[in-house]
Amino acid sequence: MEPALVENARAGDRAAFDSLVRSRIDAMYRTSLAVLGDEADAADAVQETFISAWRHCSELRDPDLFDAWLGRINLNACRAQLRHRGRQRVREVRLPDPDDGRETASTDPALDERTAGAGVFDRAFARLSVDDRAVLVLHHLEERPVAEIAKVLGPPEGTIKSRLHRARAALESALAKESR
């Protein structure tokens, strides 16, 4: 079913590509959000990803690598968003949404502590490169095998393992700086 959709999308079948979009947009948005930490940026990255994928779909040689290919496009889109972030004239401010499950400021001391911890983490995470963020998200959040991460990020598996170590060390260092 999926390979057929990818094949059809490669041949220019827009309905097939739409099906691929629908089945992947949620996961892609969450990955983007974890990497970027900003809903609007994540949404833009998702949109850019699918646009680019549709433009270049016919160049995809192996349908089995569609998800890895899409993941790589998505990370490039995240990288672009990160660069744009420093140039935004107006930053969108996220208002608390009682239904979105996120921590918000409260009078509960325990919750405040957690929120403060989240702030430290987010600031530390923002110090990392997109590649470091991506490898941590793909491994620790999405629990993807190293072989699959390698397909998304490009380098061989051995390099991915060392990148995981390096990214983790960079995060620890950033956390230490943000906690001072």
């Binding site: 949620d26 974890a34 809903e39 646009i51 979105d100």
Partner: peptide, 19 residues
């Protein structure tokens, strides 16, 4: 922590925007 960062609903209208 990463799960917290990625939590939340898919923005309403994003699928329509992409389409």
């Amino acid at each position: 922590q990463l799960a917290r960062r990625s939590a939340g609903r898919l923005p309403e209208g994003l699928l329509v925007d992409v389409t």
